[in-house]
Design a protein around this nucleic acid. Structure first.
Lengths: 339, 339
DNA sequence: TTGTAGGCGTTATCAG
DNA sequence: CTGATAACGCCTACAA
């Protein structure tokens, strides 16, 4: 690929003039601009962003670090971020960590060496993350998504996980449920897992009910029905569960159906995230909807404006669906007995 | 961020020596290496990949251009590619085009200016794609995924779409179906849409049946049941449909259920891609499984080895599921009458 | 409006 | 084994 010197020669101008045709076209006389452009076209010249970046010390690439792309919420967020970044002239360097600290560290190191202009990332626990310290020390701008720093005050964008989960639980309570469980993937120690559990606890407590321990699955994307089954039997069986993401909820519904458990008659199931596909299944999935496109675009905006320093909270919505209903009468009756 | 000169000064060595501590550590005496490393640590030095890339003329970034991340098959492929690239020391610059030629062009132009080491991409029709011409002219290495160039012989990796669709159709035929439809998203003119329709046609023809026109949906991710419904009534109603991707199939199953159509009793539905979630639903989704992790890793390998020039064909699998079954007797009887 | 020249941070080529 | 020096391709004062 040819460089500016060749273009300048062919156009009969100096390097500087040829360069200006691309960086400051309005500085040139129309005919010289034309000469340069024709020459560059003829040579198949393309400005070298790497050289420009070295010279100007500012990059046109943003780094993105997400836990996974297997959850459609992250994939869609990435797509929204990419679009928003591109309209501002930026490209996205993308990596996934699976929440593994070593991978996070390697990726962040790579991006720092690459001198990205900034980073959007989601970590397990924003208040205890090594990579965020690294970024701060390197004076690299970043914005957290989904994370909710409590002690620190990193820039972040997310929904109010605690409030959202409380509302979801409230909805199930209003339907008449009393024995409500919470199903989660691994990483219970993540900041939002904690907040969601608190939201669940808030609602249960206000209803004068006991919150149950989290039912923890081995995977973020697939529920193991066997872990839930014991709690569906006995004196005080669960009549409803809320999952911390929609994939867990969807696979739970499938597994329940195969096990002969009727949804929602015998068990109400609610998800979290509000991914599209949940709406189109049968039964449709009730969920807490996150404005994921807004979240993606907003993260890029925050990063590029580098204005705000605190947490930007986005509105969530409770999405109703056929996966939840009032509990069977027998279960209600049962629940009236003190345990 | 500090540079090699500062490190060299602090370590009491020359720039060159300091540089070698990172590029060729084994060339240095152990104690000088230590001196340099201590100094660089103290200064928070990080090698500047941009400068290195300008100097060495080889990039450590690969470009990825996919149609969308809303289909989990692409999201998962991207994740597989990212992992494979990273073990080879590469990062991924990612963009989505939604098959729009203008976006494809803008993205490719951006990546060329960024001087990526190569590109993995999926376009609508490999034999009539402007960006591939551009890439060839720029002498930029690339590998196609999912695309199946017929006339041209670009490097590509994919499953045998025609054969796969034929086998899927064969399976439905073996179950006793005679009136089988094919449901697709937009972009019927894409190379693999054509091949899949041909595969469907091959199977139907060999069975002495007429292949029906494609039932085209407005979206790649959501089926509109109203477009299918007419074909479920009348003299020769469809007893089975194959969708060109799993999201169409899943949403079709949901819509059918809501419309009171029993799956698979009244209608068998088969998907394509074999995304995980299809397995965990109820009914579980029968589908054509693509080895997507292999495909992603393979694409990166082909690009980095820059060895092969033709198409690498990966094995597919027919995944059975509860979304298909033998047709209702009434439908079989009906089909025995010549139309 | 255009040209000249120096440097962004590295690596590679020579010497020493 | 280490040091000096010249590129890599571009931008940008400053001068003309």
């Amino acid at each position: 690929m040819s460089d500016l010197i060749n273009v300048a020669k062919l156009a009969g101008v100096s390097r500087a003039t040829a360069a200006r045709a691309f960086s400051d076209p309005h500085l040139l006389r129309t005919d010289t601009l034309q000469k340069v452009l024709m020459a560059s076209e003829q040579l198949g010249f393309r400005p070298n962003h790497i050289a420009r970046q070295l010279r100007t010390q500012n990059s046109t690439t943003l780094g993105v670090l997400l836990p996974s792309l297997l959850n459609p919420i992250f994939a869609r967020q990435l797509q929204a971020m990419e679009r928003q970044a591109r309209v501002a002239g930026y490209g996205l360097l993308v990596a996934t960590s699976d929440y593994q600290p070593e991978r996070e560290a390697a990726i962040v190191e790579h991006m720092l060496r690459q001198r990205v202009a900034g980073l959007v990332l989601t970590v397990a626990d924003a208040d205890h993350s090594a990579v965020l310290q690294t970024l701060q020390q390197a004076e690299m701008p970043f914005v957290l998504t989904h994370n909710v720093p409590q002690e620190s005050h990193w820039p972040a964008i997310c929904v109010d996980n605690r409030q959202a989960m409380q509302e979801a639980t409230d909805h199930l309570l209003a339907l008449g449920h009393r024995h409500i469980g919470m199903v989660a993937g691994p990483m219970l120690q993540s900041d939002r897992a904690r907040l969601r559990y608190q939201g669940y606890g808030d609602a249960m407590q206000r209803a004068g009910l006991l919150s149950l321990p989290v039912i923890e699955m081995a995977s973020h994307t697939q529920s193991d029905f066997a872990r839930l089954q014991p709690q569906l039997q006995g004196d005080t069986p669960l009549s409803a569960v809320i999952c911390t993401n929609d994939l867990l909820a969807i696979s739970l519904i499938g597994a329940a159906a195969r096990a002969g458990v009727r949804i929602p008659k015998q068990l109400s199931v609610m998800g979290f995230d509000g991914i599209d596909i949940g709406e189109h299944m049968a039964p449709s999935l009730a969920s807490v909807t996150q404005p994921v496109d807004l979240l993606g675009a907003g993260a890029i905006d925050m990063l590029l404006q580098q204005a705000s320093r605190g947490t930007r909270v986005l509105p969530h919505q409770i999405r109703l669906g056929a996966s939840i209903a009032a509990p069977a009468l027998s279960l209600i009756a049962n629940s009236r007995e003190p345990s």
